[in-house]
């Protein structure tokens, strides 16, 4: 497991769990949650950062050494996402960016077309681009061509905690796409996270399930174990499923002895 590092844009990442920094009752929780989850990467919504008074923002609660992943939450077009990414870099948040373009506010589903466009522009500007998308193989291939460093399909709509509702589509992407696949949105329980990792997904990004738990720190820790367990099971190789019982001592085994 020590050698099992996730590589994104040439950077080795130890933890396959990425958390967000929003929805907490108190930003001071962020430090403890990151410690409990043992995350290397944390997403930050630039919309919440006051660019005039950056020192007052929640960024001060993020320990040094973590990779910031500013997201473009609030962007409704590729142009807005690009603008937010550039502002994030100017504000000292680094060159990693999670593209999130949502122009459908009822279900908060990403706009894949605008997402591809933003990815193209930002990849050319040397951003490490991690696009959040509705799972679709053709779109994922276009994102790869556009210069994405990972692809982040949703498991279910944001904030629903409904798990891997898009399982079949994600399994196809895992099989066909060579870039890291990170499930972003929908993971509500540690068992959802473990399931996603078991099928070969490379990492999990989640926020709501931890932030809205009664004990966010304990929940962060439980997700850490779930992601590790799921990854370990994937590496070990899962047995085939069958609807019928298969005895460990078959009745016809004598024919081979």
């Amino acid at each position: 497991m020590e050698d099992d590092r996730l590589i994104i844009a040439g950077k080795a990442v130890t933890s396959r769990l990425i958390t967000g920094s929003g929805k907490y009752s108190d930003d001071r929780l962020i430090k403890d949650i990151l410690a409990a989850a043992e995350c290397d990467i944390i997403t930050v919504a630039l919309r919440r950062v006051d660019l005039v008074k950056k020192g007052d923002s929640f960024l001060k609660y993020i320990p040094e050494g973590k990779t910031l992943l500013p997201n473009t939450s609030g962007a409704r077009t590729a142009d807005e996402a690009v603008r937010i990414a550039r502002l994030a870099r100017e504000a000292g948040c680094g060159s990693w960016v999670k593209i999130e373009v949502i122009k459908e506010l009822k279900y908060l589903l990403p706009d894949n077309i605008e997402t591809i466009r933003a990815t193209e522009i930002l990849a050319k500007e040397d951003f490490v681009v991690l696009p959040y998308m509705s799972p679709d193989l053709s779109v994922a291939r276009r994102l790869v061509d556009a210069g994405a460093s990972a692809v982040m399909p949703l498991g279910a709509p944001i904030g629903t905690n409904r798990g891997l509702r898009t399982l079949e589509l994600i399994e196809i992407m895992v099989e066909e796409i060579d870039l890291p696949i990170i499930i972003d949105a929908g993971i509500g329980r540690p068992s959802h996270a473990a399931h996603a990792m078991e099928i070969g997904v490379d990492a999990i990004l989640l926020n709501t399930a931890i932030a809205t738990s009664k004990d966010p720190v304990k929940m962060a820790e439980s997700f850490k174990y779930a992601v590790r367990a799921g990854r370990m099971a994937y590496l070990a190789g899962l047995g085939d499923e069958s609807k019928k019982a298969r005895p460990t001592s078959p009745l016809t085994g004598f024919l081979d002895t």
């Binding site: 009752s25 950062v49 007052d56 807005e80």
Partner: peptide, 20 residues
């Protein structure tokens, strides 16, 4: 708000983010 378990958010968007 903090005493009642809510984080008071003072900044949730900047109009500069949507200007061309």
């Amino acid at each position: 708000l903090l005493a009642n378990g809510f984080q008071p958010v003072m900044h949730d968007w900047n109009m500069k983010m949507s200007m061309c």
